[in-house]
């Protein structure tokens, strides 16, 4: 009988662990660094409100530069070996173009309606990842000797923090060709990069995901501001208190607070909610939205960018 209770207790205590989902995995994508694109002429120029702006042309770079293609492929191969496959830039660009064509062609059979797409949807349709891995290199020549200076850095797309990096110049060679020197550089530097990335993931798993949350107000003429008082407390204070209660170890930073904007940076959100479901910035911000609706009857709309940034816009849907 005692044994029965023992096994029952064991099973019940293991139940929450079994229910726990897996934390949402960040996506990584390798991009050529801006300075590399500029140096090799893979840019496009356009006028932004009268000001000439030069931006990297990744599609052209991938299609025309064999060295870049090889470097990205090699980094992808080494990351797959680590059990962490990357999203591929060239394939993403192709699929964006393909999806755009498919969206334009798709209509409903009954009314012939096209698929709804806001200008914001179009703006967000670009190659993006949670961690951007930037790669750049330079071939150095001293007489007949050649070496490669290679830099690889991982940037958190939402906090703009450099989470992993490796750089250095390889041993000079008289005979090796550039692709061989590049391959050596990628292989040589990858372990250091992976070790730093591992440290970043360890921190994320221990202290929660670091994200940015912005709260704004729709300019709909109703005059709602973050300084409005509800039961003797300003809306800023109510949201600030909610953040304090719901962030991991109360870690967040209200960096900007005006009557129309609240910018929360370094917000550590838990990886799982109380139900054991994996949490991302959208689900975390949705809890704040529900809280504002039930407690203060304020409607709000969530707008998310990837795993790590959410904007909550108050006033209406």
């Amino acid at each position: 009988m005692k044994n029965k209770y023992f096994f029952l207790t064991m099973i019940l205590s293991a139940f929450p662990l079994l229910m726990l989902g897996q934390a949402k995995k960040p996506t990584l994508m390798v991009f050529p660094a801006d300075n590399w694109c500029i140096e090799h002429g893979y840019t496009q120029t356009f006028k932004n409100q009268g000001k000439e702006t030069r931006v990297p042309n990744y599609e052209k770079a991938i299609q025309e530069d064999m060295d870049l293609y090889n470097v990205i492929t090699k980094i992808g191969e080494l990351m797959s070996d680590q059990g962490f496959p990357l999203e591929d830039l060239s394939q993403t660009i192709k699929s964006i173009n393909q999806n755009a064509t498919e969206l334009e062609m798709t209509t409903s059979r009954t009314s012939g309606a096209t698929i709804a797409e806001t200008p914001l949807d179009r703006l967000l349709t670009r190659a993006k990842a949670d961690i951007i891995v930037e790669v750049t290199w330079k071939v150095n020549k001293v007489g007949p000797k050649r070496s490669v200076t290679y830099t690889l850095r991982g940037l958190d797309a939402y906090t703009n923090k450099q989470v992993a990096a490796t750089t250095g110049t390889g041993a000079p060679s008289y005979t090796a060709e550039t692709p061989v020197l590049l391959e050596e550089a990628v292989i040589e530097k990858m372990d250091g990069f992976v070790a730093q990335l591992q440290a970043h993931f360890d921190d994320l798993l221990a202290n929660g995901r670091e994200v940015n949350i912005n709260c704004r107000i729709f300019n709909n003429g109703r005059g709602l501001t973050f300084e409005d008082e509800f039961g003797g407390e300003e809306l800023i204070e109510i949201i600030d208190n909610w953040m304090d209660e719901n962030t991991q170890n109360h870690r967040y930073n209200l960096s900007d607070a005006t009557e129309t904007t609240l910018v929360f940076k370094q917000v550590r959100i838990p990886l799982y909610n109380a139900k054991g479901r994996a949490l991302d910035t959208r689900t975390f911000t949705a809890d704040l939205r529900k809280y504002l609706k039930t407690k203060l009857n304020i409607d709000s709309k969530i707008f998310t960018v990837g795993l790590g940034r959410a904007d909550l816009i108050l006033g209406e849907k």
Partner: peptide
Amino acid sequence: IKGLNNGF
């Protein structure tokens, strides 16, 4: 030791 995939 831990791999990159641990925890995800």
